[in-house]
Design a protein around this nucleic acid. Structure first.
Lengths: 233, 233
DNA sequence: CGCGACGTTGACCTGCATCAAACAGTGTGG
DNA sequence: CCACACTGTTTGATGCAGGTCAACGTCGCG
């Protein structure tokens, strides 16, 4: 299995033994490069392998009442279709935002390793637990927050997750998302997202241009977005 | 561990072996009865046991920007704080809606059994996977649907989940929820939920009075709410 | 009988959607 | 090197779904 980000996280989170680490690292995988807009996994597919995002971004999306709703963003190290080990079909598209690289790990092989190393099963379960916590936050974000805090919260979340895999420094990172992506994720219109972002800029909270996002005043953003990073640990 | 609903579901879903079943059934637990509004687990707690809902309903809630946002409903057989095996603190209140009965199973004991029976670990991971799928649906529901389909979708989900644990027949079930609960879950105001429900009644789709909900025209409700029950399997 | 929780109704208001058009940046072909 | 097409951002005008406020109805309960 592709090491780097994922493994690093599992190591800190799951406290894997030597042999478990080796088994994980030794998993065979195939690499695939995706261009912006490419779909890694299609809605309705019954994948026979798990996808590990190695670089770039994927978004989980589906058309709901004529809107394209994004229900998750994935950063390097994430395994967006991990749940397919349990549930045969995936009911969303996993779409590359900007270019990305993914690794696929066969279910059959992975299942065998999980049987041999129960500690790995537990660790991957932990990954699902974190993803679930993120969904919960999104539910609250969409259900209870107005546009400005909603966008602020999402910015904080992305920044924190990128930081955790070493892809952001001081809240500065490369983000190939368009405002339309944010609109789809936040359940807002493009126009309103645009105005919201301008407001954040006007207040001197963010600098976002040419695919580079910088959070200029983290604390203030967290305050506005009512953000507490604990759920991401 | 308390049998009934939960075990039945795990058995069908996870294909447990004889010994795993026995281990699960043999888990010691304590029972607690809750009244309407009682809080089973408080936000910020670091529970040392998992909660299995045996009868009644729990809702996961937290105050977000001065609104009480509900991010999940739990029906008998669910384990609302299962993730606390992985993450120490729970960041929501688990609140009883109507009277309910819960069983608590010590983390220490549970962890030991999971070590001894890896198949159980896998099966409980599957529970987390389903919960995550439900969150995803809620994200989409809140992000993309107007009030009427949003409420319709939630009704369909609750009905299906109740049916799966044998607590609904022909879409008829006991539901102690108030319209305010639905408002908190759907991110709508009480007033608007009221009008939405009246619209559903007017169309002859539901009958909901004195804590009894009946879906009169399942197919039409599913159509309106764009509901597909597959994610609950 | 009175109180409190819940449901219902009407009037009014607003945050965000929608529509439309212009602008800026970037890649492509002639 | 320019014309243009295309994608993404920005701005303005207008509309509406759903929020808010306020009051009343209704039922169960101490």
């Amino acid at each position: 299995m592709p090491h780097q980000r994922l493994i690093k996280r599992l190591l800190t989170a799951g406290r894997l033994s030597e042999s478990e680490q080796k088994a994980l690292v030794g998993l065979p995988y195939a690499v695939r490069n995706l261009a912006d807009g490419d779909i890694a996994v299609h809605q309705g597919e019954r994948p026979s392998a798990c996808t590990v995002l190695m670089s770039g971004f994927l978004s989980r999306q589906r058309v709901i009442s004529e809107r394209n709703q994004i229900s998750a963003f994935y950063v390097p190290g994430d395994i967006p279709d991990l749940h397919c080990l349990h549930v045969p079909t995936i009911d969303h598209d996993l779409c590359s935002t900007g270019p990305s690289t993914i690794a696929t790990v066969s279910h059959v092989v992975l299942r065998q390793v999980l049987r041999d190393f129960p500690g790995l099963t537990y660790a991957l379960w932990g990954e699902t637990v974190i993803q679930a916590a993120i969904y919960r936050e999104w539910v609250e974000n969409l259900g209870a927050r107005a546009a400005l805090p909603r966008v602020a919260h999402l910015l904080c979340e992305l920044s924190t997750r990128m930081q955790k895999v070493g892809l952001a420094e001081n809240g500065k990172m490369n983000l190939p998302f368009t405002q339309a992506d944010f609109a789809d994720a936040c359940g807002l219109s493009v126009v309103h997202v645009n105005r919201t972002i301008q407001e954040l800029r006007r207040r001197g909270l963010i600098d976002w241009q040419s695919q580079t996002l910088e959070l200029l005043q983290r604390a203030e953003l967290e305050f506005i977005g009512d953000f507490n990073e604990e759920y991401l640990h």
